[in-house]
Amino acid sequence: MKESVIIPMITRAQVCRELRRLRPSKAAGPDEVSPRLLKVCVLELGDLLQRIVILSLEQGRVLRLWKTSCIIPVLKKPRPGELNDYKPIALTSHIIKTMEWVLLHCMMPSPPFP
């Protein structure tokens, strides 16, 4: 018998709100989708990404590429002499980050209004 899973109510407005919060100057992840593109095309992508989030939750699956990160070494010092002079930066997909924020806001209770 298959377990029933409760899928949170995810709206286009929630997805669009998170897309608008993206910082366009950030680097694209391994899927090569820039946050600038996502932010500019928010109205066109809202419905599509909402459906993708819901399908992903219903099927319990996420694209492998969205779970992948690219590790980029960034200099901490002007003249590197050893490996510790670099800090690792993980680039991940902005689409999956958006999906995670939408889900986080669905699961967190709303703050009380004063």
Rank of each mutant, 00 (worst) to 15 (best):
R36H: 15
G29D: 01
H105A: 03
T98R: 01
V53W: 00
Y86H: 04
I52Y: 06
R79S: 06
L45A: 07
E32S: 10
G60L: 08
T98Y: 02
R79K: 14
D85Y: 05
D31R: 07
T92C: 09
L48I: 14
T68I: 06
R36D: 06
R61I: 07
I52D: 02
S69L: 05
L91Q: 05
P24Q: 05
V62L: 13
N84E: 08
D47L: 09
P88N: 12
M108E: 08
G46D: 05
M107K: 04
I71L: 09
H94K: 04
L65P: 06
T68M: 11
C70D: 15
L48M: 09
S69G: 09
I96G: 03
R64T: 13
P35L: 12
V102P: 00
M99T: 06
V42Y: 04
R23A: 11
L43P: 15
E82A: 08
T92R: 05
R51W: 07
T98Q: 03
N84S: 04
N84C: 08
M99V: 10
C41P: 13
I72L: 10
L83D: 14
I71A: 07
V53P: 00
E100G: 09
R21C: 10
I54V: 14
Q59I: 05
P78N: 11
P80R: 05
L103V: 09
P112Q: 09
W101S: 11
S25D: 10
L38R: 02
I71S: 07
R23P: 04
L104R: 15
W101C: 13
P35I: 03
D31K: 03
L57E: 05
L22P: 01
K39A: 05
L103T: 03
I52E: 01
G81E: 11
L83E: 08
I96F: 13
R21A: 15
L37Q: 04
S93D: 01
K77Y: 10
S110L: 08
L38K: 04
S34E: 04
W66T: 01
K67G: 11
V74M: 13
D85G: 00
V33R: 03
P24C: 07
I95D: 00
V40D: 13
L22Q: 06
P111I: 09
G81I: 10
H105E: 13
S93L: 02
I72A: 12
I95R: 01
Y86V: 06
Q50C: 07
L55G: 07
R64M: 09
L22N: 00
D31G: 03
K97P: 00
Q59R: 15
T98N: 10
P109L: 12
M107V: 13
G81A: 05
R23W: 12
V62A: 08
P111C: 12
P112M: 06
L45H: 08
L55C: 11
K26A: 11
K76C: 01
P24E: 10
S93G: 01
D31C: 08
V102H: 00
L55N: 15
L65M: 12
L45G: 02
